[in-house]
């Protein structure tokens, strides 16, 4: 059974297999509910989401957030440290300057995920910090949806959020990647079982802004946009890690990074023709 819905700024497809159709329907509904919850907590476009309150208030007072938000921030901080700073959701101010995120009147000069301190369920920022979890929360949402499928008892399942996907249960899924030179063209990448696959590239987000080219992938060290024409995929057990590590791979530009083995991840770079 397969179903598709617009969520997370893309289309999410959930497919499950089990002889019991009612179980399949319940599993799919639970998966969408999990994704909806992640979106409500961590979307950059929802006023008063956990993310929005952290960005507006956490430098003034500790902000209480949901346990799921805490989990993503903790993972993001760990990835930030493991990647030597290449993964940093604190690049949101650059995205806002390029009109990819809503503008803000706060001044975020030293924005970095490393500024956040966690205390119980509360988040405090040492200096004004604007984070965008777009580079990790989609993967996390896929993981929570995949967990929901397993909890519901499906035999096999797939959650695919615009190319960030996870395969659970007894299925072996053929995985395709878009040709970075022609995103309508697909290439067979391999077969995946009980794991996640995520891709980052700039083919959809590249655009002109005030006379220069920008993209949604930002180098946190230079605050400059990534403009290569290649695409960067990562295979890992969890989609949260796969999603975040695609940015690390893209910014490093080569696959020899110690943090990949730490997350049991495999990089895949597709060159443009």
């Amino acid at each position: 059974m397969r179903s598709s819905r617009p969520l997370l700024g893309t289309y999410v497809t959930v497919s499950v297999s089990h002889p019991d159709a009612a179980l399949c329907e319940q599993a799919i509904a639970a998966a969408y509910a999990a994704i909806g919850r992640v979106e409500a907590l961590m979307s950059a476009f929802r006023p008063d989401s956990d993310l929005d309150r952290i960005n507006r208030l956490a430098h003034r007072e500790p902000v209480a957030v949901d346990s799921w938000t805490l989990e993503v921030i903790r993972a993001a901080q760990e990835l930030h440290a493991a990647s030597g700073g290449l993964f940093d959701p604190g690049v949101a101010p650059a995205l806002a300057r390029w009109a990819m995120l809503p503008a803000s009147d706060l001044d975020y000069e030293q924005s970095s995920i490393a500024n956040l301190r966690l205390d119980g369920d509360r988040v405090h920022a040492l200096v004004p910090t604007r984070i965008d979890l777009g580079g990790i929360a989609k993967g996390y949402a896929v993981d929570r949806a995949a967990d929901a499928l397993l909890d519901a008892g499906v035999e096999a399942g797939l959650v695919n959020a615009g190319g960030d996907l996870r395969v659970v249960g007894a299925a072996q899924e053929p995985i395709f990647v878009r040709d970075p030179g022609d995103s309508g063209q697909l290439h067979f990448a391999g077969l995946l079982e009980q794991g996640a696959f995520a891709t980052s590239a700039t083919y959809y987000s590249r655009r002109q802004h005030e006379g220069r080219e920008v993209s949604a992938i930002v180098d946190p060290l230079s605050a400059q946009p990534l403009l290569t024409r290649r695409s960067y995929s990562v295979i890992a057990p969890l989609c949260l890690h796969a999603d975040a590590l695609t940015k690390v791979l893209a910014l490093a530009g080569h696959p020899d990074l110690p943090c990949f083995s730490r997350y049991d991840a495999q990089p895949l770079i597709v060159p443009s023709p």
Partner: peptide
């Protein structure tokens, strides 16, 4: 996790 890469991707 099990990943079987395509031999000649491009």
């Amino acid at each position: 996790m099990k990943w079987i890469p395509a031999s000649a991707l491009v």
